[in-house]
Nucleic acid binder design. Structure first.
Length: 439
RNA sequence: GGUCCCAUCGUCCAGUGGUCCAGGACACAGCCCUUUCAAGGCUGCGACACGGGUUCGAACCCCGUUGGGACCGCCA
Protein backbone atom coordinates (compact mmCIF):
# COMPACT_ATOMS: atom_id res chain seq x y z
CA UNK A 1 0.00 0.00 0.00
CA UNK A 2 0.85 3.64 -0.01
CA UNK A 3 3.36 4.21 2.73
CA UNK A 4 5.31 7.11 1.31
CA UNK A 5 3.78 10.12 -0.33
CA UNK A 6 4.71 10.55 -3.98
CA UNK A 7 3.22 13.50 -5.79
CA UNK A 8 3.91 14.95 -9.18
CA UNK A 9 3.59 18.16 -11.12
CA UNK A 10 3.03 17.29 -14.76
CA UNK A 11 3.14 20.34 -17.02
CA UNK A 12 3.08 20.23 -20.77
CA UNK A 13 5.93 22.28 -22.25
CA UNK A 14 3.70 24.41 -24.43
CA UNK A 15 4.25 27.71 -22.65
CA UNK A 16 5.95 29.34 -19.71
CA UNK A 17 5.06 28.41 -16.14
CA UNK A 18 1.67 29.95 -15.49
CA UNK A 19 0.39 31.34 -12.21
CA UNK A 20 -2.13 28.51 -12.20
CA UNK A 21 0.54 25.92 -12.91
CA UNK A 22 2.78 27.45 -10.29
CA UNK A 23 -0.07 27.20 -7.80
CA UNK A 24 -0.57 23.52 -8.56
CA UNK A 25 3.15 22.80 -8.43
CA UNK A 26 3.36 24.68 -5.15
CA UNK A 27 0.63 22.67 -3.46
CA UNK A 28 2.19 19.41 -4.62
CA UNK A 29 5.53 20.58 -3.29
CA UNK A 30 3.98 21.59 0.02
CA UNK A 31 2.37 18.20 0.45
CA UNK A 32 5.57 16.35 -0.40
CA UNK A 33 7.66 18.48 1.92
CA UNK A 34 5.11 18.35 4.70
CA UNK A 35 4.93 14.59 4.62
CA UNK A 36 8.56 13.95 3.87
CA UNK A 37 7.55 12.39 0.57
CA UNK A 38 8.80 12.82 -2.97
CA UNK A 39 8.00 15.58 -5.40
CA UNK A 40 8.28 14.48 -9.01
CA UNK A 41 8.43 16.58 -12.14
CA UNK A 42 7.05 14.84 -15.19
CA UNK A 43 7.00 16.48 -18.59
CA UNK A 44 3.88 15.72 -20.58
CA UNK A 45 5.17 16.46 -24.05
CA UNK A 46 2.78 14.35 -26.05
CA UNK A 47 1.58 17.26 -28.14
CA UNK A 48 4.12 17.11 -30.92
CA UNK A 49 2.97 20.36 -32.44
CA UNK A 50 3.27 22.62 -29.44
CA UNK A 51 5.82 21.09 -27.10
CA UNK A 52 9.32 22.56 -27.16
CA UNK A 53 12.56 22.04 -25.32
CA UNK A 54 12.71 25.79 -24.59
CA UNK A 55 9.41 25.75 -22.77
CA UNK A 56 10.47 22.73 -20.77
CA UNK A 57 13.48 24.70 -19.60
CA UNK A 58 11.49 27.83 -18.82
CA UNK A 59 9.07 25.83 -16.74
CA UNK A 60 11.92 24.28 -14.81
CA UNK A 61 13.65 27.58 -14.17
CA UNK A 62 10.32 29.09 -13.20
CA UNK A 63 9.92 26.39 -10.60
CA UNK A 64 13.45 26.91 -9.37
CA UNK A 65 12.78 30.61 -9.08
CA UNK A 66 9.78 29.87 -6.88
CA UNK A 67 11.94 27.58 -4.80
CA UNK A 68 10.11 24.41 -5.79
CA UNK A 69 12.80 21.77 -5.98
CA UNK A 70 11.94 18.30 -7.23
CA UNK A 71 13.34 14.94 -6.21
CA UNK A 72 12.86 13.20 -9.53
CA UNK A 73 12.59 14.70 -12.98
CA UNK A 74 13.90 14.73 -16.52
CA UNK A 75 17.10 16.53 -15.52
CA UNK A 76 17.78 14.87 -12.18
CA UNK A 77 16.62 11.40 -13.17
CA UNK A 78 15.37 8.93 -10.60
CA UNK A 79 14.24 5.34 -10.07
CA UNK A 80 11.21 5.72 -12.33
CA UNK A 81 13.00 7.33 -15.29
CA UNK A 82 12.45 8.47 -17.90
CA UNK A 83 10.34 11.44 -16.78
CA UNK A 84 9.44 12.74 -20.20
CA UNK A 85 6.38 11.12 -21.74
CA UNK A 86 7.84 11.21 -25.23
CA UNK A 87 10.47 8.80 -23.92
CA UNK A 88 7.98 6.36 -22.46
CA UNK A 89 6.13 5.47 -25.64
CA UNK A 90 6.71 1.71 -25.43
CA UNK A 91 5.02 1.57 -22.05
CA UNK A 92 1.87 3.20 -23.43
CA UNK A 93 2.03 0.92 -26.46
CA UNK A 94 2.30 -2.26 -24.41
CA UNK A 95 -0.49 -1.27 -22.06
CA UNK A 96 -2.73 -0.37 -24.98
CA UNK A 97 -1.98 -3.74 -26.61
CA UNK A 98 -3.07 -5.47 -23.47
CA UNK A 99 -6.41 -3.69 -23.44
CA UNK A 100 -6.75 -4.46 -27.14
CA UNK A 101 -6.14 -8.16 -26.48
CA UNK A 102 -8.65 -8.17 -23.66
CA UNK A 103 -11.23 -6.62 -25.94
CA UNK A 104 -11.50 -3.50 -23.80
CA UNK A 105 -10.22 -1.26 -26.54
CA UNK A 106 -10.51 -1.06 -30.30
CA UNK A 107 -8.72 0.46 -33.26
CA UNK A 108 -10.05 3.21 -35.48
CA UNK A 109 -7.70 4.42 -38.06
CA UNK A 110 -4.25 4.28 -36.47
CA UNK A 111 -5.72 5.28 -33.11
CA UNK A 112 -6.47 3.03 -30.15
CA UNK A 113 -9.69 3.80 -28.34
CA UNK A 114 -10.88 2.63 -24.95
CA UNK A 115 -14.40 1.31 -24.86
CA UNK A 116 -16.12 2.83 -21.84
CA UNK A 117 -18.30 0.21 -20.15
CA UNK A 118 -21.92 1.27 -19.78
CA UNK A 119 -23.97 1.45 -16.63
CA UNK A 120 -21.04 1.78 -14.30
CA UNK A 121 -20.90 4.26 -11.45
CA UNK A 122 -17.57 6.04 -11.40
CA UNK A 123 -17.15 7.51 -7.95
CA UNK A 124 -14.24 8.74 -5.91
CA UNK A 125 -13.62 10.49 -2.66
CA UNK A 126 -11.77 13.71 -3.34
CA UNK A 127 -9.68 15.00 -0.45
CA UNK A 128 -10.95 18.51 -0.90
CA UNK A 129 -14.24 18.16 -2.77
CA UNK A 130 -15.52 15.06 -1.06
CA UNK A 131 -17.65 12.41 -2.72
CA UNK A 132 -17.96 12.85 -6.47
CA UNK A 133 -19.87 10.46 -8.66
CA UNK A 134 -20.61 10.15 -12.34
CA UNK A 135 -22.35 7.57 -14.46
CA UNK A 136 -20.19 6.02 -17.17
CA UNK A 137 -23.08 6.40 -19.64
CA UNK A 138 -22.36 10.11 -19.92
CA UNK A 139 -18.84 9.40 -21.14
CA UNK A 140 -17.76 8.94 -24.71
CA UNK A 141 -15.14 6.33 -25.58
CA UNK A 142 -11.65 7.52 -24.72
CA UNK A 143 -8.85 7.90 -27.21
CA UNK A 144 -5.73 6.35 -25.70
CA UNK A 145 -3.27 6.45 -28.56
CA UNK A 146 -3.56 9.14 -31.17
CA UNK A 147 -3.08 8.46 -34.88
CA UNK A 148 0.43 9.88 -34.61
CA UNK A 149 1.32 7.19 -32.09
CA UNK A 150 1.39 9.50 -29.10
CA UNK A 151 -0.76 8.78 -26.05
CA UNK A 152 -3.48 11.20 -24.96
CA UNK A 153 -3.42 13.05 -21.65
CA UNK A 154 -6.09 11.03 -19.86
CA UNK A 155 -4.45 7.77 -20.79
CA UNK A 156 -0.79 8.66 -20.34
CA UNK A 157 -1.45 10.26 -16.97
CA UNK A 158 -3.03 7.05 -15.70
CA UNK A 159 -0.26 4.83 -17.01
CA UNK A 160 2.47 7.05 -15.58
CA UNK A 161 0.83 7.76 -12.25
CA UNK A 162 0.55 4.02 -11.79
CA UNK A 163 4.04 3.21 -13.05
CA UNK A 164 5.60 5.96 -10.97
CA UNK A 165 3.63 4.89 -7.93
CA UNK A 166 2.08 8.29 -7.42
CA UNK A 167 0.15 8.28 -4.16
CA UNK A 168 -1.71 11.59 -4.47
CA UNK A 169 -2.86 13.26 -7.63
CA UNK A 170 -3.06 16.94 -6.77
CA UNK A 171 -4.19 19.12 -9.66
CA UNK A 172 -6.56 21.89 -10.66
CA UNK A 173 -10.29 21.61 -10.26
CA UNK A 174 -10.69 21.79 -14.03
CA UNK A 175 -9.59 18.15 -13.97
CA UNK A 176 -12.48 16.93 -11.86
CA UNK A 177 -14.46 16.07 -14.95
CA UNK A 178 -11.47 14.15 -16.34
CA UNK A 179 -11.21 12.01 -13.27
CA UNK A 180 -14.10 9.61 -14.01
CA UNK A 181 -12.51 8.85 -17.38
CA UNK A 182 -9.28 7.99 -15.67
CA UNK A 183 -11.15 5.97 -13.09
CA UNK A 184 -12.62 3.83 -15.88
CA UNK A 185 -9.09 3.27 -17.15
CA UNK A 186 -7.74 2.32 -13.72
CA UNK A 187 -10.56 -0.18 -13.31
CA UNK A 188 -10.10 -1.73 -16.75
CA UNK A 189 -6.38 -2.10 -16.09
CA UNK A 190 -7.05 -3.52 -12.64
CA UNK A 191 -4.84 -0.92 -11.01
CA UNK A 192 -5.19 0.62 -7.61
CA UNK A 193 -6.25 4.26 -7.76
CA UNK A 194 -4.25 7.07 -6.23
CA UNK A 195 -5.85 9.55 -3.85
CA UNK A 196 -7.26 12.55 -5.68
CA UNK A 197 -7.15 16.10 -4.38
CA UNK A 198 -8.40 18.85 -6.64
CA UNK A 199 -7.45 22.45 -6.07
CA UNK A 200 -9.75 25.45 -6.49
CA UNK A 201 -9.11 27.55 -9.58
CA UNK A 202 -7.51 30.95 -9.63
CA UNK A 203 -9.74 33.54 -11.24
CA UNK A 204 -9.16 36.98 -12.68
CA UNK A 205 -10.90 40.11 -11.41
CA UNK A 206 -13.83 39.27 -13.65
CA UNK A 207 -14.11 35.88 -11.94
CA UNK A 208 -13.17 34.03 -15.09
CA UNK A 209 -10.36 31.50 -15.29
CA UNK A 210 -7.07 33.37 -15.20
CA UNK A 211 -5.75 33.95 -18.68
CA UNK A 212 -3.68 36.31 -20.79
CA UNK A 213 -6.50 38.82 -20.77
CA UNK A 214 -5.87 39.39 -17.09
CA UNK A 215 -2.36 40.73 -17.64
CA UNK A 216 0.70 39.02 -16.26
CA UNK A 217 0.18 35.29 -16.12
CA UNK A 218 3.65 33.76 -16.24
CA UNK A 219 5.65 33.66 -13.04
CA UNK A 220 8.56 35.31 -14.84
CA UNK A 221 6.56 38.41 -15.43
CA UNK A 222 6.31 38.81 -11.68
CA UNK A 223 10.05 38.49 -11.30
CA UNK A 224 10.51 41.17 -13.96
CA UNK A 225 8.05 43.44 -12.21
CA UNK A 226 10.20 43.27 -9.10
CA UNK A 227 8.40 40.71 -6.97
CA UNK A 228 10.39 38.37 -4.78
CA UNK A 229 9.98 34.64 -5.25
CA UNK A 230 9.28 34.35 -1.53
CA UNK A 231 6.33 36.70 -1.90
CA UNK A 232 4.86 35.04 -4.94
CA UNK A 233 5.21 31.74 -3.13
CA UNK A 234 3.58 33.14 0.00
CA UNK A 235 0.79 34.76 -1.98
CA UNK A 236 0.05 31.65 -4.03
CA UNK A 237 0.03 29.48 -0.93
CA UNK A 238 -2.71 31.69 0.49
CA UNK A 239 -4.97 31.07 -2.48
CA UNK A 240 -7.23 28.25 -1.40
CA UNK A 241 -5.41 27.52 1.81
CA UNK A 242 -4.51 29.10 5.11
CA UNK A 243 -2.68 27.81 8.18
CA UNK A 244 -5.84 28.28 10.25
CA UNK A 245 -4.64 31.07 12.48
CA UNK A 246 -4.06 34.64 11.45
CA UNK A 247 -0.53 34.08 10.22
CA UNK A 248 -0.21 35.41 6.69
CA UNK A 249 3.44 36.19 6.13
CA UNK A 250 5.56 33.06 6.20
CA UNK A 251 8.50 31.29 4.58
CA UNK A 252 8.46 28.18 2.41
CA UNK A 253 9.68 26.09 5.29
CA UNK A 254 7.01 27.39 7.62
CA UNK A 255 4.36 26.80 4.98
CA UNK A 256 5.54 23.23 4.42
CA UNK A 257 5.40 22.56 8.10
CA UNK A 258 1.89 23.98 8.54
CA UNK A 259 0.39 22.74 5.30
CA UNK A 260 -2.35 20.16 5.21
CA UNK A 261 -4.44 19.04 2.25
CA UNK A 262 -7.48 18.81 4.49
CA UNK A 263 -7.36 22.57 4.99
CA UNK A 264 -7.63 23.35 1.29
CA UNK A 265 -10.92 25.06 0.52
CA UNK A 266 -13.21 24.52 -2.46
CA UNK A 267 -14.06 28.03 -3.45
CA UNK A 268 -12.17 29.47 -6.41
CA UNK A 269 -10.17 32.57 -5.54
CA UNK A 270 -9.59 35.83 -7.31
CA UNK A 271 -6.02 36.90 -7.96
CA UNK A 272 -5.62 40.16 -6.07
CA UNK A 273 -2.63 42.28 -7.00
CA UNK A 274 -3.05 44.57 -4.00
CA UNK A 275 -2.56 41.67 -1.66
CA UNK A 276 0.51 40.50 -3.58
CA UNK A 277 1.95 44.00 -3.30
CA UNK A 278 1.44 44.01 0.42
CA UNK A 279 2.97 40.57 0.89
CA UNK A 280 5.93 41.59 -1.24
CA UNK A 281 6.47 44.69 0.82
CA UNK A 282 6.43 42.64 4.00
CA UNK A 283 9.03 40.23 2.66
CA UNK A 284 11.10 43.10 1.33
CA UNK A 285 11.20 44.68 4.77
CA UNK A 286 12.41 41.46 6.35
CA UNK A 287 15.32 41.06 3.96
CA UNK A 288 18.90 41.63 5.12
CA UNK A 289 20.55 44.59 3.29
CA UNK A 290 22.78 42.51 1.06
CA UNK A 291 19.91 40.43 -0.25
CA UNK A 292 17.77 43.49 -0.80
CA UNK A 293 20.61 44.99 -2.78
CA UNK A 294 20.88 41.89 -4.95
CA UNK A 295 17.18 42.22 -5.69
CA UNK A 296 17.21 45.91 -6.56
CA UNK A 297 20.49 46.02 -8.44
CA UNK A 298 19.16 44.67 -11.75
CA UNK A 299 16.55 47.39 -11.83
CA UNK A 300 19.09 50.12 -11.13
CA UNK A 301 21.19 48.69 -13.90
CA UNK A 302 18.22 48.71 -16.20
CA UNK A 303 17.80 52.41 -15.38
CA UNK A 304 21.40 53.01 -16.42
CA UNK A 305 22.59 54.16 -12.99
CA UNK A 306 26.34 54.10 -12.13
CA UNK A 307 26.19 51.28 -9.62
CA UNK A 308 29.81 50.28 -9.80
CA UNK A 309 31.09 53.71 -8.83
CA UNK A 310 29.66 53.27 -5.34
CA UNK A 311 30.77 50.96 -2.54
CA UNK A 312 28.41 48.08 -1.78
CA UNK A 313 27.92 49.38 1.77
CA UNK A 314 26.76 52.71 0.39
CA UNK A 315 24.24 51.00 -1.88
CA UNK A 316 22.94 48.79 0.88
CA UNK A 317 22.57 51.74 3.22
CA UNK A 318 20.68 53.63 0.51
CA UNK A 319 18.07 50.91 0.47
CA UNK A 320 17.95 50.62 4.22
CA UNK A 321 17.12 54.31 4.31
CA UNK A 322 14.08 53.59 2.17
CA UNK A 323 12.57 51.70 5.11
CA UNK A 324 9.43 50.20 3.67
CA UNK A 325 9.07 52.68 0.83
CA UNK A 326 8.25 50.80 -2.35
CA UNK A 327 6.30 47.61 -2.66
CA UNK A 328 8.49 46.00 -5.29
CA UNK A 329 12.20 45.95 -6.05
CA UNK A 330 11.41 47.97 -9.15
CA UNK A 331 9.75 50.68 -7.08
CA UNK A 332 12.55 50.65 -4.53
CA UNK A 333 14.98 51.20 -7.38
CA UNK A 334 12.95 54.08 -8.75
CA UNK A 335 12.60 55.72 -5.33
CA UNK A 336 16.33 55.70 -4.69
CA UNK A 337 17.95 56.73 -7.95
CA UNK A 338 19.16 60.08 -6.54
CA UNK A 339 21.52 58.23 -4.22
CA UNK A 340 23.44 56.90 -7.19
CA UNK A 341 23.49 59.85 -9.50
CA UNK A 342 22.61 63.54 -9.76
CA UNK A 343 21.37 63.06 -13.31
CA UNK A 344 17.85 61.84 -12.55
CA UNK A 345 17.40 64.72 -10.11
CA UNK A 346 18.17 67.26 -12.80
CA UNK A 347 15.87 65.53 -15.21
CA UNK A 348 12.99 65.84 -12.81
CA UNK A 349 13.53 69.45 -11.83
CA UNK A 350 15.35 72.13 -13.73
CA UNK A 351 15.27 74.59 -10.85
CA UNK A 352 13.39 75.19 -7.66
CA UNK A 353 10.56 77.62 -7.43
CA UNK A 354 11.21 80.46 -5.00
CA UNK A 355 11.03 84.24 -5.18
CA UNK A 356 13.89 86.54 -4.27
CA UNK A 357 13.23 86.86 -0.57
CA UNK A 358 12.64 83.11 -0.14
CA UNK A 359 15.76 82.37 -2.10
CA UNK A 360 17.82 84.56 0.19
CA UNK A 361 16.50 82.69 3.24
CA UNK A 362 17.32 79.34 1.68
CA UNK A 363 20.81 80.48 0.74
CA UNK A 364 21.56 81.52 4.29
CA UNK A 365 20.11 78.37 5.78
CA UNK A 366 21.80 75.98 3.38
CA UNK A 367 25.15 77.67 3.74
CA UNK A 368 25.03 77.47 7.49
CA UNK A 369 23.90 73.87 7.27
CA UNK A 370 26.90 73.00 5.16
CA UNK A 371 29.18 74.69 7.63
CA UNK A 372 28.07 72.46 10.47
CA UNK A 373 31.06 70.94 12.28
CA UNK A 374 29.39 67.54 12.40
CA UNK A 375 27.83 66.01 9.31
CA UNK A 376 25.06 63.85 10.63
CA UNK A 377 21.30 63.86 10.48
CA UNK A 378 20.78 64.44 14.16
CA UNK A 379 22.98 67.51 14.25
CA UNK A 380 21.35 68.84 11.11
CA UNK A 381 17.90 68.42 12.51
CA UNK A 382 18.76 70.12 15.80
CA UNK A 383 20.37 72.94 13.91
CA UNK A 384 17.40 73.29 11.57
CA UNK A 385 14.85 73.39 14.36
CA UNK A 386 16.75 76.12 16.14
CA UNK A 387 17.31 78.02 12.92
CA UNK A 388 13.66 77.85 11.94
CA UNK A 389 12.57 79.08 15.37
CA UNK A 390 15.14 81.85 15.42
CA UNK A 391 14.31 83.09 11.93
CA UNK A 392 10.57 82.60 12.02
CA UNK A 393 10.63 80.16 9.12
CA UNK A 394 8.73 76.91 9.13
CA UNK A 395 10.70 73.66 9.06
CA UNK A 396 8.66 72.64 6.09
CA UNK A 397 9.80 75.65 4.10
CA UNK A 398 13.40 74.74 4.75
CA UNK A 399 13.15 70.98 4.34
CA UNK A 400 11.05 70.77 1.20
CA UNK A 401 13.29 72.93 -1.02
CA UNK A 402 16.30 71.01 0.29
CA UNK A 403 14.59 67.72 -0.52
CA UNK A 404 13.81 68.94 -3.99
CA UNK A 405 17.41 69.91 -4.66
CA UNK A 406 18.83 66.68 -3.34
CA UNK A 407 16.33 64.18 -4.71
CA UNK A 408 14.27 65.93 -7.33
CA UNK A 409 11.25 64.53 -5.53
CA UNK A 410 8.58 65.81 -3.23
CA UNK A 411 8.75 62.60 -1.23
CA UNK A 412 11.74 60.81 0.22
CA UNK A 413 13.11 59.49 3.49
CA UNK A 414 13.95 62.13 6.10
CA UNK A 415 15.79 64.80 4.19
CA UNK A 416 18.61 65.14 6.76
CA UNK A 417 19.25 61.43 6.61
CA UNK A 418 19.37 61.70 2.86
CA UNK A 419 21.81 64.57 3.16
CA UNK A 420 24.01 62.71 5.62
CA UNK A 421 24.10 59.67 3.41
CA UNK A 422 24.83 61.66 0.26
CA UNK A 423 27.79 63.27 1.98
CA UNK A 424 28.64 66.92 2.39
CA UNK A 425 30.49 67.19 -0.93
CA UNK A 426 27.63 65.84 -2.98
CA UNK A 427 25.12 67.97 -1.11
CA UNK A 428 27.21 71.06 -1.78
CA UNK A 429 27.43 70.14 -5.44
CA UNK A 430 23.69 69.80 -5.80
CA UNK A 431 22.88 72.96 -3.87
CA UNK A 432 25.39 74.92 -5.91
CA UNK A 433 23.84 73.64 -9.08
CA UNK A 434 20.49 75.09 -8.08
CA UNK A 435 22.02 78.34 -6.86
CA UNK A 436 20.80 78.03 -3.29
CA UNK A 437 24.09 78.71 -1.56
CA UNK A 438 25.55 82.11 -0.64
CA UNK A 439 28.22 83.23 -3.01
C1' G B 1 -27.37 21.84 -24.47
C1' G B 2 -25.24 17.62 -21.22
C1' U B 3 -22.24 16.41 -16.92
C1' C B 4 -19.76 18.10 -12.66
C1' C B 5 -18.33 21.79 -9.07
C1' C B 6 -18.84 26.23 -6.05
C1' A B 7 -21.52 30.12 -2.90
C1' U B 8 -19.10 34.40 4.48
C1' C B 9 -17.11 41.83 3.87
C1' G B 10 -15.01 44.73 -2.94
C1' U B 11 -10.74 40.83 -2.47
C1' C B 12 -7.92 36.70 0.30
C1' C B 13 -8.89 33.73 4.46
C1' A B 14 -11.10 32.15 9.83
C1' G B 15 -15.54 29.83 11.25
C1' U B 16 -17.25 22.52 10.88
C1' G B 17 -24.95 23.29 15.55
C1' G B 18 -24.86 27.18 20.85
C1' U B 19 -18.71 30.88 23.05
C1' C B 20 -20.88 34.81 15.93
C1' C B 21 -25.94 41.03 16.50
C1' A B 22 -19.61 36.62 12.53
C1' G B 23 -12.95 37.19 13.46
C1' G B 24 -8.13 38.52 10.82
C1' A B 25 -5.57 40.49 6.39
C1' C B 26 -5.54 43.56 1.73
C1' A B 27 -7.93 47.69 -0.28
C1' C B 28 -10.67 52.17 1.13
C1' A B 29 -11.79 56.48 4.72
C1' G B 30 -10.42 59.20 9.12
C1' C B 31 -7.12 60.29 13.24
C1' C B 32 -2.19 60.08 15.67
C1' C B 33 3.08 60.49 14.56
C1' U B 34 5.65 64.10 11.21
C1' U B 35 10.17 68.34 7.23
C1' U B 36 7.29 65.08 2.69
C1' C B 37 5.90 60.10 1.48
C1' A B 38 6.04 55.56 3.42
C1' A B 39 6.38 52.55 7.83
C1' G B 40 4.01 52.16 12.63
C1' G B 41 -0.35 52.92 16.08
C1' C B 42 -5.69 53.72 16.63
C1' U B 43 -10.73 54.10 14.65
C1' G B 44 -14.27 53.41 10.91
C1' C B 45 -16.72 51.28 6.46
C1' G B 46 -18.04 46.41 5.05
C1' A B 47 -20.47 39.80 4.31
C1' C B 48 -23.16 34.58 6.13
C1' A B 49 -27.04 35.01 -2.09
C1' C B 50 -32.47 33.84 -1.54
C1' G B 51 -36.53 30.54 0.02
C1' G B 52 -38.03 26.35 2.52
C1' G B 53 -37.07 22.58 6.01
C1' U B 54 -34.40 19.60 10.35
C1' U B 55 -33.36 21.27 15.46
C1' C B 56 -34.67 23.92 21.82
C1' G B 57 -30.97 26.42 18.71
C1' A B 58 -28.06 27.05 11.98
C1' A B 59 -23.07 30.85 8.57
C1' C B 60 -22.43 25.74 9.76
C1' C B 61 -27.01 19.80 8.25
C1' C B 62 -30.99 18.68 4.09
C1' C B 63 -33.97 20.33 -0.26
C1' G B 64 -35.05 23.94 -3.87
C1' U B 65 -34.15 28.69 -6.38
C1' U B 66 -30.79 32.14 -8.13
C1' G B 67 -25.95 33.41 -9.37
C1' G B 68 -20.96 31.95 -10.76
C1' G B 69 -17.36 28.49 -12.66
C1' A B 70 -15.19 24.10 -15.07
C1' C B 71 -15.36 20.22 -18.48
C1' C B 72 -17.63 17.96 -22.70
C1' G B 73 -10.59 17.58 -28.59
C1' C B 74 -6.72 12.01 -31.81
C1' C B 75 -4.84 19.87 -26.17
C1' A B 76 -3.04 18.95 -21.62
Amino acid sequence: MVDTVRVRFAPSPTGALHIGGGHTALFNWLWARHTGGKFILRIEDTDRERSTQEYEETIMSGMRWLGLDWDEGPDTGGPYAPYRQSERLSLYRETADRLLREGKAYREGEAVIFKVPQGVSLAFDDVVYGQIQMLSDTLKDIVMIKSDGMPTYNYAAVVDDHAMEISHVIRGEDHISNTPKQLALYDALGWERPVFAHLPMILGKDKKKLSKRHGATSVYEYRDMGYMPDSVFNFLALLGWSPGDDLEIFSREEAAQMFDLSRVIKKPSVFDMDKLNHINQEHLKKLPPCERLALVEPFWREMGLPIDSHPREYLEASLTLLAGRGQTAREAAAYSDYFLDFGPVKERYESIEADGAQLEVLRRFNSELLALPEWNAEAMETFSREWSAANGVKMKDLAMPLRLCLTGMKVSPGVFEVAEHLGVREVRRRLEHYGVLQA
